[in-house]
Amino acid sequence: MKLNRPTQPSRQSWWRRFCLWLLQAMGWTPVVAPLPGPRGVIIVYPHTSNWDFLIAVLYRFGTGLATNWMGKDSLFRWPFGGLLRRMGGVPVNRRAASGFIGAAVEQFGTHDWLWLALAPEGTRKHTDHIKSGFYQIAVRAGVPVGFGFIDYPSKTVGLREFVRFSGDAEQDMELIRAFYADKRGRRPGEASELRFRKS
């Protein structure tokens, strides 16, 4: 199955103009970096507030960034399945023997366009680690990773840098820490520590 590339609104789109206007009216400045290819992973950090979702949605539609997200396949049934797909949704069978990570990697092999956006914390509350799913997906699929952020002190939201992980988790984590060192969420104390859980 091939995934249709999410439609990017034209410059004349009233919806795109409205989303950008609202984002900027709230005091936010969008930062946009062109996607380097047809497939990859985007992580968004830190995630400490419900406001992050609204800001991210306004950014996504306002800039026309063609990103995707994954959800359990049962969500994509009638009557909302078509709408969710048009919004960039990709159905995944979480019951598959390969698990969520394996299913996500398989999607990169069967879709001609897939930029999967993930919040590696998986929660708005502080934890002593982030989830490694995004890392495993990127390494196994051999795709680049974009660093997305919502920085409240500077009120900037966007995507600024892309990397390819080496497979050395600690070395790659240093790249992540360096990029996000000056990024702060709405509630800085709730941001999870940038390290993977020790196995």
Rank of each mutant, 00 (worst) to 15 (best):
A33I: 04
A33D: 09
P34G: 10
G37Q: 08
P38D: 14
P38W: 03
R39Y: 01
G40K: 07
V41S: 06
I42M: 07
I43F: 09
V44Q: 09
V44F: 07
Y45W: 05
Y45R: 07
T48D: 04
A56N: 12
A56V: 10
V57C: 14
V57H: 12
L58H: 04
Y59R: 05
R60E: 06
F61H: 07
F61W: 13
F61Q: 01
T63E: 03
T63R: 03
T63K: 01
G64P: 10
A66M: 13
T67N: 04
N68K: 01
N68D: 01
M70A: 12
G71E: 02
K72P: 11
K72E: 11
L75S: 12
F76M: 13
P79I: 05
L84A: 00
L84C: 02
R86S: 14
M87Q: 06
M87W: 15
G89L: 04
G89F: 03
V90K: 01
V90G: 00
V90R: 00
V92I: 15
V92M: 06
A96V: 12
A97Y: 05
A97V: 04
S98Y: 06
S98Q: 14
F100D: 09
I101H: 06
G102T: 08
G102S: 06
G102Y: 05
A103G: 11
A103N: 09
A103S: 15
E106A: 13
Q107H: 11
F108Q: 01
G109D: 08
G109P: 07
T110A: 02
H111T: 08
H111S: 09
H111P: 03
W113L: 01
L114E: 06
W115I: 03
A117H: 06
A119L: 04
P120D: 05
G122A: 15
T123A: 07
K125T: 13
K131P: 12
K131Q: 15
S132E: 10
S132D: 06
S132N: 06
G133Y: 05
F134V: 08
Y135L: 03
Q136L: 08
Q136C: 10
V143P: 02
V145D: 03
V145F: 15
G146Q: 02
G148M: 11
G148V: 09
F149R: 02
F149G: 02
I150Y: 03
P153C: 01
K155H: 12
T156K: 13
T156I: 08
L159Q: 03
R160W: 11
E161K: 13
F162L: 12
V163D: 02
